[in-house]
């Protein structure tokens, strides 16, 4: 695959940045969680931040626009999160793989040609669904009552659409306007997307 060192560094450094933001959010999530824990909803507190968790994949897919961008970005981000230190360690790589697949699958279905808002929304939804399936198996959520899972899923979907569609696209377009993404596929086509 034709990946330049510059592209890899861009994705890796952005993954570090999103990782820092996400870690900051999980601390906030931890505080909300301890309030919600006696109500049995402690795990819900982390859901509003899932969108930030997926941002590395969304941003890479949207900016780089090459096959494999979402998967590679998430695996890089997961290795970086493992190196930054958290209590799940390398298990993060499993969930990273699942997240990357979510975006990658939608973009691959559209033959790596369409990158409009609708595609990104579909990617965010698929990513949320995939990670929920992951949670059902790995986190044991299949033992939790369905109404609770539905509430979690709704919060996760909203978060994914807000952060991975509106915030990610806004940031990327801002960067194009600032002239920073000149070497990337996004810079030539961002006006077309804006017209849609």
């Amino acid at each position: 695959m034709n990946w330049k060192l510059k592209d890899i560094l861009m994705i890796a450094i952005c993954a570090v940045l999103f990782g820092v933001v996400y870690l900051g959010c999980t601390n906030v999530g931890g505080m909300i969680s301890s309030v919600l824990t006696p109500l049995g909803m402690g795990s819900l507190a982390y859901e509003p931040f899932y969108g930030i968790y997926f941002m590395a994949a969304a941003f890479a897919v949207y900016v780089i626009r090459k096959p494999g961008a979402g998967l590679i970005a998430e695996i890089l981000a997961a290795i970086i999160e493992t190196l930054m230190g958290n209590f799940f360690g390398p298990i993060i790589i499993l969930s990273g793989l699942v997240q990357g697949l979510g975006f990658e699958a939608i973009i691959a279905l559209k033959k790596y040609k369409k990158y409009d808002r609708m595609t990104m929304i579909e990617g965010a939804i698929l990513c949320s669904v995939f990670t929920m399936i992951y949670n059902l198996i790995v986190s044991g959520y299949n033992k939790i009552a369905i109404p609770v899972l539905i509430i979690m899923m709704i919060v996760r979907l909203i978060s994914a659409v807000v952060f991975d569609v509106f915030v990610t696209m806004g940031l990327a377009k801002g960067l194009v306007k600032a002239g920073l993404l000149k070497g990337y596929r996004i810079s030539g086509v961002v006006e077309e997307d804006a017209a849609e």
């Binding site: 301890s34 919600l36 824990t37 109500l39 402690g42 986190s139 044991g140 939790i144």
Partner: peptide, 13 residues
Amino acid sequence: LAALGLFFMGLYY
């Protein structure tokens, strides 16, 4: 903390 959150979620729901 995360385990406690999951514990209570399992206990109630």
